[in-house]
Simulated scan of single mutants.
Amino acid sequence: MAIDAEIEFPTIELRSSDLKRGTEGWNRLCKRVREACETFGCFDVVYKKISTKIREDAFELQKELVEVPVERKQKNTSPLPCHGWVGPCEQVSMLYEGFGVADASNYDSVNNFAQLMWPNGQPRFTDTIHTLATQMEELNKLIWLMLTDSYGLQEDSLKMNYKTLVRMMKYLAPPPGEYERGFFAHTDKPISTLICEDKSGLEIEVNNDQWIKLTNLSPSSFVFIVGDPLKAWSNGRLKPVNHRVMMSGDKDRYSIAAFIIPNEGTIIKAPKELIDEKHPQLFKEFDFMDFFLYAISDPAKHIDSGELLHAYASLSPPVSN
């Protein structure tokens, strides 16, 4: 998918015929996934196993969700940051509104959220969001497996107990002729993220301060994003990408993101196979939740957030990508 005359953002289609481990097709895919995550920190993954209908249904239901009264939205709370409802505000963006469903591959969790928003129940919402979340979680697992295989590691090298946090986000169209921030630039603090969107708006930073908009994504596309902890796990090989949402035009934007949030007590550390004389250990072992709370709880830390991992866990001065 060509976005810029000089930059071609990687699009990788995961065809079922290439998904048998150990085959030539599988090995080629693994190499492409690793190279995309090392170079860009993200890629466009085309995955037709998740139907376009389930995505369209989810966006349709999301449009119903944003219409519920504010007093119900305010019931979407959590002791963990980024897990509840956030309305338009100066801190994030006056164009942004987001809802959080924790443990969204668990049917009861989605149903409990739906009953908060619709006291009389909304089984179609529960069924659709639970199905989409479960399928996105499986896609994330598949990409993780590709990364471990590409580095020649055992499957359990990137295996942990976690929950999938689904955030459903709406971005208002800006005033006519304006180009406005929908969400500030940041790197992700969960392990990894999958995003699907109904219109373009997501931008990534490349080549230091050059931003490109991800356009022409197919109806079967998801954007996989490397989070800060994957950089630590890979001993600096994988690149968390700085990304933002910028809005233009006269249409609102809807997106659904699945964030991988490890359970409390999960330790992030690089496998010994990724540490040697040429690749000395860059980061200390750390508790994921301690890092997550450190990075997310203080809004001021969103500035230059790509450096937070180094500030928290680096064993050496930060190295520019």
Results as ranks from 00 to 15, higher is better:
residue 5 A to E: 15
residue 6 E to P: 04
residue 7 I to M: 10
residue 10 P to R: 06
residue 14 L to I: 11
residue 15 R to E: 12
residue 16 S to G: 02
residue 20 K to W: 04
residue 20 K to P: 02
residue 21 R to Q: 11
residue 23 T to Y: 00
residue 24 E to I: 12
residue 26 W to K: 00
residue 30 C to I: 02
residue 41 G to D: 07
residue 49 K to Q: 15
residue 51 S to E: 06
residue 55 R to W: 07
residue 58 A to H: 08
residue 59 F to V: 01
residue 63 K to S: 09
residue 72 R to W: 12
residue 72 R to F: 11
residue 81 P to W: 06
residue 81 P to H: 08
residue 81 P to L: 06
residue 82 C to W: 09
residue 86 V to E: 13
residue 94 M to S: 07
residue 95 L to F: 00
residue 98 G to T: 11
residue 98 G to E: 01
residue 98 G to A: 14
residue 99 F to N: 03
residue 102 A to H: 11
residue 104 A to V: 09
residue 107 Y to D: 04
residue 119 P to Y: 01
residue 121 G to T: 05
residue 121 G to H: 06
residue 126 T to A: 08
residue 127 D to K: 13
residue 129 I to P: 00
residue 130 H to T: 13
residue 131 T to G: 07
residue 132 L to E: 05
residue 135 Q to N: 13
residue 136 M to H: 03
residue 136 M to Q: 10
residue 138 E to A: 15
residue 140 N to S: 14
residue 146 M to E: 09
residue 146 M to D: 07
residue 154 Q to Y: 07
residue 156 D to T: 11
residue 157 S to G: 03
residue 162 Y to M: 11
residue 163 K to V: 10
residue 166 V to G: 06
residue 173 A to T: 00
residue 176 P to G: 06
residue 185 A to L: 11
residue 204 I to W: 03
residue 208 N to Y: 13
residue 214 L to C: 03
residue 220 S to Y: 14
residue 223 V to F: 10
residue 223 V to H: 04
residue 243 H to K: 09
residue 243 H to E: 05
residue 244 R to W: 04
residue 247 M to A: 00
residue 253 R to F: 00
residue 254 Y to G: 00
residue 254 Y to W: 09
residue 258 A to C: 15
residue 258 A to Y: 03
residue 264 E to R: 13
residue 268 I to M: 15
residue 275 I to V: 15
residue 280 P to W: 10
residue 283 F to R: 08
residue 289 M to L: 15
residue 291 F to P: 07
residue 298 D to C: 10
residue 298 D to L: 10
residue 303 I to V: 14
residue 305 S to V: 08
residue 313 A to Y: 10
residue 319 V to L: 13
residue 321 N to H: 14
